[in-house]
Structure formats: C-alpha cells, structure tokens
Amino acid sequence: MSLQNVTLHVPPKDKLSGRLDVLMMVSGFLLALFVGMHMVFVGSVIISPKLMNALAWFFEELYLVQIGGPVILLVMVGHFILGARKMPFRQKEYVAFRAHSKMMHHTDTTLWLVQVATAIIILVMASIHIYTMLDTLPITAAKSAARIQHGNWMPFYIVLLAAAAIHIVIGLYRIGVKFAVVTRENRPKARKFMVYLLVAAAVISFLTHIRLSLLTI
C-alpha cells in the first residue's frame, strides 16, 4: 500500500490478490482439463468415426456444446485477463525480461516467454476455432474430415495444437511449482513427465489428423 491511496479510506483487509491467483490457477487448470478431454474426444475418430459422431451427438443433445462452448470461451478470456496482469505489455518490462532471459540462458525463465507467446496465439486462434465450430454445428466426423481435406485447416490446427500443448504443459508444471507440488526433490521427474505429456499430445493429434485425412467423406 502506498501513501497515495491510503488517504481516502481505511484499507479493508482484502484477499483479492490471493483469490485472483487461485482463480488464475483454477481457470488454467480447467482449460487444460477441457483441452485434454477435447483431444480425447476428437481423437476418438482414430478408433472409429462412428464413436466420434456418437459422442458429438450425445454432447449436443444435452446442449453441452451449445452452452459449454461459449462458457469455455468466457473462461478463456477470463483466464487471459488474469494472465495479462503478469504479461510484459509495457515495453520497458518486455525489454527487461528479454535481456534477462538472454543473460541467464535458463530454461524455466525462457519457457515463461514461450508461455506468453503461445497464450496470445491461442487467444486468437482458439477464438476463431470455437466460433467456426459453433457456427457449423452439429459436429460430425465427416465435417471435420472435410475441413482437414478441403478447407486447408490443417496448418491452422497444427499451429494451434502446438501452441496449446506447449502452453498447457508449461502451465501445469508451473502450477505444480507455485503450489509446492513440484518440489526441489521431484522437479527433474516432473519435467520428464511434462515432456512425455507433450509427446503424447503430439502423437494423438498426429493420428487424429491422419485418420481425418484418410476418412472418405
């Protein structure tokens, strides 16, 4: 608290900082959970397009998509606003951080810049993606395959997926660090685990894309 803002009122005991921090973690975690499930959902096409269609039907019948989609979008924007408090938007901050990460050659420090960059990519691309999806309901394996095969969506998805996967993996690791789940002792293990997670995401997605590309519409 500074002497400039203490003049008008007796400061209330406020817990806002802590709550925002919790919210940031929870929103990030929920988004991560969503994307994970979403990957599994889209990935179900690998097993059979019918399964994917069935799942999609199920979600839509229950209006999960229609409601959930905008909610996810909201959570994402909320998460972004929370995250933005930490992002180096001001030039001075950005320059300082860049200089710092260059000086240190320190993985965890550099990864934070990566997280910020991927966040912005996700914000833009996922918004477009969600809008497109909600615009063209219902979801079917056939429509998805068409988008991949004729709509030139593949490059878009590759970038989005890479950004999302990286952002999430770093994000989860950091939640672990921030709340003493990842400790000095298990940090090397946690890092390894995160790399596995990244690889798994890439593999599932790769197979999904292959399947969607080969699917006869």
Partner: peptide
C-alpha cells in the same frame, strides 16, 4: 512470483527457495 525458478537454480547456499515459495503461496492462497 511466476515460478521461474532462476532463484532456486542460482542460490549459492542452496536454500530451499522453490519449496518455501510453494509452501508460502499455498498457505496464503
């Protein structure tokens, strides 16, 4: 703190900074 862990990795006295940051943050959150 954004969990950058530069502190943890340079501390010459090997003070358990990472763990303390985590424990304090969790407690206060």
């Amino acid at each position: 703190c954004m969990g950058l862990l530069g502190c943890e990795d340079v501390c010459p006295k090997k003070i358990p900074l990472q763990d303390q940051l985590g424990i304090m943050r969790r407690m206060l959150a």
